[in-house]
Simulated scan of single mutants.
Amino acid sequence: MTRTKAEQDRYALPGSPPTDEDLRHEAALTRAEIGETVAALRHRADVKARMREAAQHRMALLHDAMNATTDHAHRLAGTVRAHPVLAGGVATIAAALVMLTIWS
């Protein structure tokens, strides 16, 4: 809740005191701003809840990554079953590269 330009000009004019309605409106704005500030401070002070939220978020990310890895492994296993000669050739080349790396 912010003041409009007209309200700001009205409060800024010297010699024209604010009306009762202006004061009530100003008090309502102040109460709303204080309420928002208190809510923000309460949230920041609740470290336990914030840590729980962060842990839940990380667990969800981990769960998603685990599902993606499982799906990838199932697809890879299907490819190996469909093309066993190709999979054997790739495994042989990988083993040879590892051996060359170790012996170098």
Score class of each variant (00 low, 15 high):
A28E: 09
S16N: 09
A55V: 04
T92D: 12
D46V: 03
M1S: 11
T4L: 00
A95C: 12
A94T: 12
T70I: 15
G15M: 04
T30H: 05
A73V: 14
G89Y: 07
G15S: 09
I93D: 14
L61H: 03
D9E: 06
T4N: 00
E26L: 10
K48C: 01
G35Q: 07
A87K: 01
K5N: 03
P17V: 05
H57S: 10
E21Q: 02
S16C: 09
H63W: 15
S16M: 08
L76N: 02
E53P: 05
R58K: 06
A82G: 05
D71L: 11
H63Q: 15
Y11M: 15
A77D: 14
V38I: 13
T37P: 02
L13C: 10
Y11W: 15
V80C: 04
D22S: 02
A6P: 00
A73M: 14
T30D: 10
A73Y: 03
S104F: 06
T79D: 04
A55P: 03
E53S: 05
A28N: 04
G78N: 07
Q56D: 13
T101Y: 14
A95N: 14
T101G: 12
R81F: 06
R50T: 00
T37E: 09
D9A: 10
T70R: 08
N67E: 11
R31M: 05
S104E: 13
S104N: 13
L100R: 11
T2K: 12
D20R: 10
D9S: 02
